[in-house]
Design a protein around this nucleic acid. Structure first.
Length: 588
RNA sequence: GCGCCCGUAGCUCAACCGGAUAGAGCACCAGCCUUCUAAGCUGGGGGUUACAGGUUCGACUCCUGUCGGGCGCGCCA
């Protein structure tokens, strides 16, 4: 519909230009938008306002000229000039009826487009350290990232979904030592557990698995393990705790030797990663690739990245470490790439990772991070610029945390409190559908209050329920139809769409026609909440229609037409929910 | 202290590169309905868009400052 109107306007403007009524050197992108209020018609354009400034004419006079030059169209019932110079289009009922045929024909494809032109986009999301189960914060990133990826796919991008596995680095060493100490503990060695080790019960499970796999081969006496290890100071500042755990890691490495240490390390990694993977799969979130951080070192990518940085001339040595002068690119301070002890930093592998992403040929790269990592954005972009890549190819989307509420009370999310913290527990409590929908209902940079009671409630107050119910209700109408042995003749219905003149029907059709625009806008803006919002409106239009009209009427022409309309509604709800990872049930 | 994000109706949130009278849902209030296809319908009140300036035909939107909330400022990841 928009392109059609745009065409009409373009014609009119071009016509004015050839007759000389309008200077021919003004170029303008004609904008058409949906009106907010029915009083302003169905669509409006501000061309006259924008052009008026250029050609120094009164907007309303110019609008008048444009409207007079407008070609006739059977889809346009009336054109008005309003306000400061808006051109308002009132569409004929027929214009909206077309959309039903379109939807029924396209089916699952309705709303998809080729806007993306098959360009490649990589979306990296969740990427939580494999040191423990996913928590509810990761859940929002998962739901959001999956929805963004699916939306981009829907509008014609070639999307590659990726999880970056932090399988190297100190945090993983801490997991390994935690597993080993629990393993020793399970086998009777009395060792005080370090304050900043991983305390969760799942570590015991991994330790038990380790014992099943390796038996007693990895046992060492407590006294040997603890010999000369600095004391723990849980209450003190971080430094003592850090020293202690580092010493324990070193001790484990020497006592076990590289092979056995790796065995402990890897069992932790594989058990937890497997768990994360299952968790996400159950949540309807699947990846094309699980990219290993370790592989970056092994393939030499990190070295290459550092070489490229060096060649750029933006690095220097200070106090034995290698620094990247990211301040050259607007970062707050310079960053260490290679530590004094020769080890590379997390930042170094991240530079290599992003270099690798662009080397793989993605035309756009999207990182979805928790908002607490926002300070990290400038340095990554700086590094890309330094090594000669285009930092504008990278979009970093920051997802704010969700705060859970139960019974009007904020749910404390500390591990100790016994209240749930994991994504899996959330899914179990409210279900996948509600979790997916609630997570994407708000825009990502908005702090979110997640009302658990609402998410669980089987009532119209619950947006997920409300939308799914609209779908189920339509299915139920068709079931009723079959029970009453009433036929539904689609072709006949198509021929009688002109009977759908009720305001509710007009409203529903107008909303249905918006769907492709919503999908496109939500995709390009990375804003799935637009779609969630839209689905609520669509469900509302359907429910009010349902409440005031009977569909299974005796007049067969009217019945076929109405059934076509609600079937189109069912299709669009199903399509929309699918993009958000939410099921469209036939019964509630 | 510096940086990033956020601040919209009582609550949760929208508002399409700056557009018309800032919109929904819940809650509240008032009528109607008690039935079909399942958990009703219709209407109403409610706002100095945190605050103060600025930019312009026009600002929730852009700029500056102030206040409030969140987060970040490691040779951790």
């Amino acid at each position: 519909m928009k392109p059609h109107l745009k065409n009409l306007l373009a014609n009119a403007v071009a016509g004015l230009q050839t007759t000389g009524a309008l200077s021919s050197d003004v170029r303008i992108d004609i904008e058409i938008e949906r009106t907010r209020s029915k009083d302003h018609g169905d669509f409006a354009s501000n061309v006259a306002l924008v052009l008026a400034a250029e050609v120094r004419e009164k907007p309303r006079d110019l609008a008048q000229k444009i409207v007079r030059a407008l070609p006739a169209s059977d889809k346009v019932a009336k054109v008005e000039i309003a306000g400061p110079g808006f051109i308002n289009f009132f569409l004929s009922p027929a214009a909206f009826q077309d959309v039903i045929r379109e939807i029924l024909q396209a089916g699952e494809a309705y709303g998809r487009s080729r806007t993306g032109g098959n360009r490649t986009v990589q979306v990296e999301f969740v990427s939580a350290n494999p040191t423990g189960p996913l928590h509810v914060g990761h859940g929002r990133g998962a739901a959001y990232g999956a929805a963004v990826a699916d939306l981009l796919t829907a509008v014609g991008f070639k999307v590659h979904r990726e999880y970056y596995v932090n399988d190297a680095g100190r945090q993983m060493d801490i997991l390994a030592i935690s597993v080993w100490l629990r393993y020793l503990e399970l086998n009777g060695e009395e060792i005080p557990f370090p304050a900043n080790g991983y305390q969760g019960d799942y570590v015991y499970d991994i330790a038990a698995a380790l014992h099943r796999e390796s038996g007693d081969a990895l046992l060492r006496p407590a006294a040997t393990v603890m010999h000369d290890i600095p004391p723990d100071e849980p209450e003190g500042d971080g430094a003592a705790k850090e020293k202690r755990i580092d010493a324990l890691i070193e001790r484990a490495k020497t006592l076990l030797g590289p092979t056995d240490y790796r065995r402990v390390f890897d069992i932790g990694l594989s058990v937890i990663l497997g768990d994360i993977r299952r968790d996400l799969e159950e949540f309807g979130v699947v990846y094309d690739e699980w990219f290993s951080e370790r592989s970056l070192t092994e393939s030499g990518a990190v070295e290459r990245a550092i070489e490229r940085l060096k060649k750029s001339g933006h690095v220097y040595e200070k106090e034995g470490a290698l620094w990247f002068r990211s301040t050259d690119y607007g970062d707050e301070k310079d960053r260490v790439v290679v530590r004094e002890n020769g080890q590379i930093t997390y930042f170094a592998s991240d530079i290599a990772y992003h270099m690798d992403k662009l080397e793989r040929g993605f035309e756009r790269v999207i990182d979805i991070w928790g908002a607490d990592h926002h300070g990290y954005v400038p340095r990554i972009k700086a590094a890309l610029a330094a090594i000669g890549d285009n930092p504008d190819k990278l979009d970093v989307l920051l997802v704010q945390f969700a705060i859970l509420y139960r019974g009007g009370e904020r749910v404390q999310m500390s591990t100790r409190s016994g209240e749930f913290v994991t994504l899996r527990e959330l899914r179990r409590e409210v279900g996948n559908d509600a979790a997916r929908f609630f997570y994407v209902m708000r825009k990502c940079e908005q702090h979110m209050d997640f009302d658990l009671d609402l998410a669980k409630s089987q009532s119209n107050d619950n947006p997920v329920y409300y939308v799914q119910y609209a779908h189920a209700r339509i299915c139920s109408v068709f079931k009723q139809m079959r029970e009453k042995n009433l036929p539904h003749d689609r072709e006949n219905g198509i021929r009688h769409l002109h009977l759908l003149t009720e305001p509710h029907e007009q409203a529903l059709m107008a909303t249905l026609s918006r769907y492709p625009e919503v999908v496109e806008s939500a995709a390009l803006a990375y804003e799935p909440h637009q779609l969630a919002q839209y689905l609520r409106e669509l469900a509302y239009d359907f429910h009010t229609y349902y409440n005031t009209h009977t569909f299974l009427v005796d007049s067969s022409n009217m019945r076929h037409a109405r059934l076509n309309l609600i079937d189109a509604g069912r299709q669009v709800i199903a399509n929309g929910l699918r993009l958000l990872g939410v099921s469209a049930p036939e019964t509630m």
